[in-house]
Nucleic acid binder design. Structure first.
Lengths: 361, 361
DNA sequence: CTGAAAGCGCTTACAG
DNA sequence: CTGAAAGCGCTTACAG
């Protein structure tokens, strides 16, 4: 039977409808169908009658009414800045993990896409009105004092730039990841290693820079400020930053390896190098950070520092639900959770030409 | 002041709290703060007092209670199958458009990630319980008879495989897009054009095949069934399908061009060709379908048939909201909306070697 | 084993 | 201009 406009407007059946159809009270129906914590037990025959009526009427518990009583929407919110232009693989991998974990706990996920973190204080509050039970902030940049999060909603952050009071933060060991990658480059024989990274205001960027410098120092290679370049975290900016650098260093020595602060930036590098006719890894090695899907679909494939983004998203859901429903275990007392990073070596990273070519320097 | 466990558990202020604080009734507060359709007007002084009290208490209207009365959650659902392994760029671009349009209409978006469309009938119904006002189905494969959508929830589909009664479908002119791409390949001089596409059960796949055959016929090139290959819509399957074909056709003529049914499949092709040391476009040209982000980050960049996925997602939101709130304009009587496709030419598609090399064939 | 009552927080008529 | 009443659909004590 085709759905007509008329049936489309039909109201959904309520417990009252079911009770009437089965000849019982609303709450007998409630007890049987939605089986709350009430101790009341209904006779088997009655119960069957109620279930049959519910099935016949296509009864479905009204989420709003249920939420009003139980103060639980079974929905978690995810807020982040999703720039319009470029798909953000970093976010998408985190989101994937959130989605999977939420589904496993029978929770829905609603996305709050902010244009800009400056509007977050105003908008975030408006979302915390009962439509979600808790919220995950992905990459919030604000300082604790700048923003007051609604007190009645639990929050968890991922890669918060500053610790938010009362909000557990999930991060990864970026310093160690950066250090390992640069160390590996040094072991391959690279000496002029550029670090093309994100904005310096970002705490993650500063950690990566520390790791970079640490690895250089440990190998006795002097840090050259000229090889440390900042860009925004996207490929367009990455491309432009490298172009500009190449232009302003015309005729001088190229970096042997470019260690990028994100895979997106690394994509931009690959493009900029390709424009100049420079081959990767033959002329220059390139490495990224994050190990998103992007790293696997470039040619050559991109070496990267893997952050377990999907797992981090999943963990955020677990921690949030523990706060929302602190039944069994109390929420852990720690303020932040650090996931390990991991080196993923791929074709874009190889020894410098002089180590490969027996005729070379 | 740091959020402590105690404040975190504090209940949100209600209209009753605000009214009490301002010395007015609940509904005076309601009228001033949430300003419904009621004609009642409150004196300026009272109004200010109420607003001040609301601000002081950090009042926020409870979404569940509001939804219970108004039967509107201001949330739209998006359901699709999001395979765990690989990020699905097709979906993500559609989703991007949905998110933007929803935000513009002050609607939230909640994602229902199905593992499998076979579970859709059961799960979809459970979501239509008032937590969303309507739902967008992205790529539903089922036949009308197989599934009964909840009658009290409006639906819109994108790329439905079969028309769903009472559900407006948004699609793109895939046949024409495929035809144009193959025609362009033929004009470049290609004759052995492989079509490596999705599963034949998919109506979009059949349309692309029709376009492919149509272009061949128009150019007087005989259709060779050996050059029509099906795979699943992801790069892993695309790679394996092309590998298998190359293995089983060892020593025989390669295709001059491979027209893929999606960018994801094309990525797999690029990998498979690269494994064999075949260069794109020098040895083989490759084209994709969808023009997702993936097409722009391969090396070489991928020619593709652009579907305006983001715009299609946005349109789905508009159509859904028109059904949810049919105030001014009645929903258009059409059953489906077809967006135009567009050829996007990039470096992966070039004339065959014999047309470029003056010494060749 | 089953039902009448009260309430979750809000809004919409309807009286004053 | 302002408030008392009824109800949205459900659940949780509490009586029978």
């Amino acid at each position: 039977m085709p759905r007509t406009r008329k049936t489309a407007l039909r109201r959904a059946a309520t417990l009252a409808d079911v009770g009437r159809a089965a000849g019982v009270s609303v709450m007998a129906a409630s007890a049987v169908i939605n089986g709350g914590r009430t101790s009341s037990r209904i006779a088997a025959a009655t119960s069957e009658r109620i279930l049959a009526a519910a099935a016949r009427l296509g009864y479905r518990r009204n989420a709003a009414a249920h939420a009003l009583v139980n103060r639980r929407m079974h929905t978690i919110g995810v807020a982040s800045v999703l720039a319009g232009g470029e798909l953000n693989h970093y976010f998408l991998e985190v989101f994937n993990g959130i989605l999977a974990a939420a589904a496993q706990h029978e929770q829905n996920t609603t996305v709050f896409s902010l244009h800009d973190w400056t509007e977050a204080p105003r908008r975030l509050g408006r979302f915390c009105d009962g439509r979600i039970d808790g919220m995950i902030l992905v990459g919030p940049p604000f300082r604790a004092g700048k923003v007051t999060l609604p007190a009645h909603t639990p929050f968890v952050s991922i890669h918060a730039n500053h610790p938010l009071p009362g909000v557990m933060n999930i991060e990864s060991d970026e310093e160690r990841g950066a250090c390992q990658m640069v160390k590996h480059g040094l072991e391959l024989g690279h000496r002029r290693i550029m670090h093309l990274t994100g904005p310096r205001s970002d705490v993650g960027v500063r950690r990566r820079i520390r790791g970079y410098k640490h690895a250089l120092a440990a190998a006795g290679v002097r840090f050259d400020p000229d090889l440390l370049v900042s860009a925004q975290y996207n490929s367009e900016e990455g491309r432009q930053a490298l172009r500009a650098w190449l232009d302003s260093h015309h005729g001088r020595a190229l970096p042997q390896m470019i260690f990028c602060g994100s895979d997106a930036i690394a994509l931009g590098c690959l493009e900029a190098l390709s424009e100049r006719g420079l081959r990767v890894p033959d002329d220059v090695s390139v490495a990224g950070f994050d190990d998103t899907l992007a790293a696997r679909i470039t040619m050559p494939q991109l070496a990267s520092v893997r952050q377990p983004l999907s797992a981090m998203g999943g963990k955020a859901v677990d921690l949030l639900l523990a706060q929302i429903e602190p039944r069994a275990a109390p929420p852990p007392p720690v303020k932040s959770l650090v996931f390990p990073t991991e080196l993923v070596l791929r074709a874009s990273l190889a020894p410098p030409p002089d180590r490969r070519d027996p005729l070379g320097g």
